[in-house]
Design a protein around this nucleic acid. Structure first.
Lengths: 160, 160
DNA sequence: AACAGACAAAAACAAGAATAATTGTCGTGT
DNA sequence: ACACGACAATTATTCTTGTTTTTGTCTGTT
């Protein structure tokens, strides 16, 4: 139950002492325990968070953005205790994405977004159904129904 | 098969005619074929790309960013023919992430990034080995528990 | 070794103006 | 129906400038 000392954390995670103290002072990442004398003792859980923070920084995420991310994560996922250690993150400079239960969403806005390419095929079929054979428009009443291509119009007869 | 006409594409993908023409004119997305008269004929492949573009726009990605994304994708994945239709994308406003063969990377910089939490455990063990403990604690701290609380919440903590 | 404080350099941010890109709408011609 | 062109309206981007945050380095205390 002792936890990791300041120096150990520095060696393991690669963050500087300055960062450690600053982050503690500003509340970004506080050690979960202290010695009787008031010295910090970081848990393994803390280590994960610190390593995550280090990685985010290396990936170009600023500390300010990290703070926002944490705030929003707590808001969006209230069950989360230590955001930086309990979810999967993918970060690239400006944005931090969170992967949670199979969906991805942006950490700050919470906007969820995935691209389901497959769905397109449905749209095509749906269009076929909704526009069976264009007999519309009084302009070109002579459009062929089955195939015949009698319209004379240069090749615009598409299709499939 | 002739391919899809302008109007069909509009109905199916939801992009406007203006966008279609502008994108064709500026080279963002060109139809793969044309009629004898010079009219556009979009392939199914094109449809996918167009739908992807539409989705990216709906997700807040600007056209300019899309251009950059395409340029970089072609650079990073030379085998790719039509970037917007051949990879999985996750976008959130500023950034477009690409998923290809199981790895995620940012579309423009190509910076690859995932957070391998497991690796941290290694670092801890390595540190233990490199810095033998004089007389101290031992036994590995347990894996993160959802709770952990235990009241100790160091109510921290004076600032200065 | 761990902590606190103070100073300055570096990095990140916010707000706004100038610039460029994108889109809507009109009208034309085939 | 499709394409082209031109104009204005909207939307992004870039580039400022001033401000805040973060970090490095130092000194001193427990």
């Amino acid at each position: 139950m002792d936890g990791f000392t300041n120096r150990q954390v520095i060696r393991i995670t690669g963050v500087t002492e300055r960062q450690l103290t600053y982050w503690r002072k500003t509340g970004l990442l506080c050690p979960t325990a202290h010695t009787a004398g008031g010295h910090a003792r970081y848990s393994f859980h803390d280590l994960i968070a610190l390593k995550a923070a280090k990685r985010l920084i290396d990936a170009g995420v600023s500390v300010q953005r990290m703070r926002k991310v944490i705030v929003s994560l707590v808001r969006f996922l209230p069950t989360i205790d230590q955001p930086l250690s309990e979810v999967s993150l993918v970060a690239t400079g400006d944005v931090v994405l969170v992967f949670h239960r199979g969906v991805a969403f942006e950490a700050i806005t919470g906007q969820e977004w995935v691209l389901p390419i497959a769905e397109l095929q449905r749209d095509v079929v749906r269009d076929r159904a909704a526009n069976p054979i264009p007999v519309q428009e009084e302009l070109f009443p002579a459009w062929p129904v089955a195939n015949g291509e009698g319209g004379g119009r240069t090749g615009n007869r598409a299709v499939s």
